[in-house]
Amino acid sequence: MHEVVDEHILQRIMGNNEDAAEHNREHFDENGNVAINFMSAPGAGKTTLLEACIQKLKAKFKIAVIEGDMVGTLDADRLAGTGAPVHQISTGRACHLDASMVGRLLHQELFDKYQVLFIENVGNLVCPAEFPLGEHFRVVLLSASEGDDKPLKYPVIFKNCNAVVFTKCDLLPHVNFDLEKAAEAVKNLNPEASIFSISVKTGEGLSQFLQWLSAQILAKQKHALHNKAIAAEGGFNVYFDASESNICRRQ
């Protein structure tokens, strides 16, 4: 046997997902959409929080939802109850959404014009962390009925997000969950992350989270408008170049 090539290279193993995520991001930015990816272990309260967020924000923004579930449409049906358009991605055996699944949905152009896209990822604290979808913001939920050591056990997802929401805080008096301890680990891993403690059941802390969410969405929209204005003046912002934006629609 004869070695012909012994190559030292550096190739990103997740490059295909990263490229697909970037492509999704171009779609979002082109249309002025703000996309937010909600992740947590199963049952931490994603669907419940999204229902509440949509109810409170639907007068302000046009909201659409992508619901990621391995099987069944239970959560999608719950979210559709808010009146927002919901599209389900059934991942089957895959325990996370990936960027190409979201991309296929975006290319079908099923949604009417919307401003905000909530994505409920598959319940899992491991895999979704490795599959960015092109979203602008990531929110990770951790419920009081889980362990306060989750950020220590699953640091990657808590490190790579914009906000951590401790949910079901109405249960705190009844469970052994040390909020301080959980928050400390998050702050050490991710000092920039915003941290919230909420209960959708009692409404406690919800308005702070909604305020944060609205502020992020508005800031992103303002930024997009600014870019659009630059493009209109003949600037070189490629995202809003019409010929550029038609490329993938023709595919």
Partner: peptide, 13 residues
């Protein structure tokens, strides 16, 4: 890191 850093290619035995 999550990268490929080296590949060895040989003639088929």
């Amino acid at each position: 890191e999550l990268d490929i850093v080296r590949i060895i290619i040989s003639t088929i035995d």
